[in-house]
Design a protein around this nucleic acid. Structure first.
Lengths: 204, 204
DNA sequence: GGATCCATATGATCACAGTCATACACAGTG
DNA sequence: CACTGTGTATGACTGTGATCATATGGATCC
C-alpha cells in the first residue's frame, strides 16, 4: 500500500540545469566516500545503491527504476555512504547539489516539495524495514510481491531478476527460489515465465 | 556512523504554536488509520511507532527518545499507517500538520530544514534496513551496539530494555539474550548491570 | 560455433533462530 | 503483604535459512 511512490518525482524535475548521463550495465555513478553528486533521476534502466557488509555480503539499500529518483539524502550529507551501480544500460539526469540549493533559495516551494518526496521515500523505507523484520522467507517474499503495482487485471510485473529481489529481501537467492517454488506448489503464486506474477489470497 | 542524528530537531522546534501533551506508559498518541496529527517532538520519555504483522508479530518501525522527533512523514500522508505508543511516561509537543504547512508558506526556510531533517531520518532508516538484512543475530546486535553514541571513554548507554532492542532488530528476545551471552563470553561485549555497554574490537 | 557469463533451479548438510517452557528478580499496586 | 506484570535469562526441540555443490537454459561475445 504505502510502498508505491506517492510523490511524482517529475514534480521535482521542474528544476534547472540537470546533466544527462548514460551508464552501461555495471557502471558506477558514484562510490562510497565520494562527495555528493546531487539528486539523480532515472529515465531508463535501473540503478542500485549498494554496500558490502563486513562479512562480504552484498546489501542492496535501494533500487531505482525509470521514473524514480535517488540519492536525495546526499544533498544534506558530506559524503556518499554507498555505491550507485547501474544494473542495466541506463539514462539518468543529475541535478548537482549546489545548483539545487541555489534553486531552492530562489524558489521556496522546492524545499517543501523535496520534503514531501523525502517523506514518501521514508515511508517506503520503513515498509522495507517491516518486511525485513519478518523471519520467514515466504513472508518477506509474499509481502514484497503484494507491494508490487498491480495490472488492471491481477497481473504484477516484477521489473527485475528474482536474484535481485532476493538481495533486496536480505535472503540468499537459493532461499528465494525455494520459497517461490513452495508458494507456487501451494497455489499462492503463479509465474508466467517472463517476470509476470499473479497472486492468490488476501494481502493480510 | 550515519545512524546518529545529523540534524538537530531543535532547529525544527523554532515553530509556532505547538501543543504540549503528557502521556502515560502504554498511551497511544495515535492509531493506524487516524488522520495525521502532525510533527511530534519528544521532550521526555519515549515513543514507538508500531505495527502488528499479519501473523501477530509486533514490529517496531521507529523509536523516538528525548530530543527526537517523529511522524514527520505523516505531514504528507492522508492517514497514519502505524500506532504511536508511549513506552514510558512522556512529554511531547505536537505541531499540527495544517499549522506547519501554513508556517512553511510564511517562512520558506522551514521546507528546506524539514527536508534536511527527513533526509537524515532516511539515511538512518536505510542503516536500519542494512542491519535487518544481516542473517545472524550476533551481527545485527553488534551493528546496533556499535551505532550507539559513545561516551568520552568507551561506554555506550543503551537507553532502552534489551527486549525493546530485540524488537527493533527483528529478533525474538530469547535470540537476543543468547547472542548477548555468547558475545559476552567471547569478550566482545561487556555489560554493567545498568544499561551500559562496552565493546571490544573494530566496528568493521 | 564454441566460450562465457548469468539467472534459474535443486539437493545435502549444518548452524542457528523460532518456539515453548520455566525460573527469578524487580517494580508497582491493591 | 500478596499479587501482577515485565524484563532478564536459560534449556529443549524443531523448523528453516545459509552454505556448498551441481546442473541447465538463455544471453552475449568473439
Amino acid at each position: 500500500m504505502y510502498d508505491c511512490d506517492h510523490m511524482d518525482p517529475a514534480q521535482l524535475a521542474a528544476l534547472p540545469d540537470g546533466q544527462d548521463l548514460r551508464l552501461a550495465r555495471g557502471d558506477a555513478l558514484f562510490r562510497a566516500g565520494d562527495p555528493p553528486l546531487g539528486l539523480v533521476l532515472v529515465h531508463r534502466g535501473a540503478l542500485e545503491l549498494r554496500r558490502v557488509s563486513a562479512e562480504g555480503r552484498l546489501i542492496v539499500l535501494h533500487r531505482a527504476g525509470p521514473g524514480d529518483s535517488f540519492a536525495e539524502a546526499s544533498l544534506f550529507e558530506p559524503r556518499h555512504h554507498c555505491d550507485a551501480v547501474a544494473t542495466a544500460p541506463s539514462l539518468v539526469t543529475v541535478h548537482a547539489a549546489a545548483a539545487l540549493r541555489r534553486a531552492a533559495a530562489a524558489d521556496p516551494s522546492i524545499g517543501w516539495r523535496l520534503a514531501a518526496h523525502l517523506a514518501a521515500r521514508l515511508v517506503a523505507e520503513r515498509a522495507r524495514a517491516e518486511r525485513l523484520a519478518q523471519p520467514r522467507a515466504a513472508d518477506r517474499l509474499l509481502d514484497a510481491l503484494h507491494a508490487l503495482p498491480e495490472d488492471d487485471d491481477g497481473l504484477r510485473h516484477l521489473g527485475r531478476s528474482w536474484k535481485t529481489l532476493a538481495a533486496e529481501l536480505g535472503l540468499t537467492h537459493e532461499a528465494t527460489y525455494r520459497a517461490l517454488a513452495r508458494l507456487e506448489r501451494a497455489g499462492l503464486v503463479r509465474r508466467d515465465g517472463r517476470g509476470g506474477v499473479r497472486l492468490a489470497g488476501p494481502p493480510a
